[in-house]
């Protein structure tokens, strides 16, 4: 490892740091449950109005089903940005800007992002 680190130099260090960050950013089971609750709550995230989510009843079909999120959003930050304000990328998007319009607090956006990312 030392040899390898030396050979690859800063790149590997950065890589190691990144892995460390990703690991530390792993949401706990309790956080995921909290995120799910906000996502399903009609007065909060209300994601089911438009999206199919496994375990949710009576989902709408305006948005795409929320499955395989890690392959659709390899970068979790982009998923969070989409939840925070989908109109930043597409001004005509029908999706409510959950963060920008303070439908959810920043903490709630984090929790919902963790949960959706886990799908």
């Amino acid at each position: 490892m030392t040899k390898l680190t030396k050979r690859l130099g800063p790149t590997a260090t950065a890589l190691a740091l990144c892995i460390g960050l990703v690991l530390s950013a792993q949401a706990s089971a309790a956080d995921l449950e909290a995120g799910k609750k906000i996502a399903f709550d009609r007065s909060k995230g209300n994601c089911l109005t438009c999206h199919h989510i496994e375990g949710g009843t009576l989902p709408g079909n305006i948005g795409p089903p929320l499955v395989a999120m890690k392959s659709r959003f390899p970068d979790k930050a982009k998923l969070r940005a989409q939840i925070w304000d989908a109109t930043a990328i597409n001004p005509h998007s029908i999706m409510p800007p959950l963060g920008r319009h303070r439908i959810l607090s920043e903490k709630e956006v984090d929790l919902v992002t963790d949960y959706i990312y886990s799908l």
Partner: peptide, 17 residues
């Protein structure tokens, strides 16, 4: 952040819940 048009021009025939 919804316009009448968002639901009734862009997405008629789709379901909300």
């Amino acid at each position: 952040n919804l316009a009448c048009a968002d639901c009734h021009i862009q997405y008629p025939g789709h379901r909300v819940r």
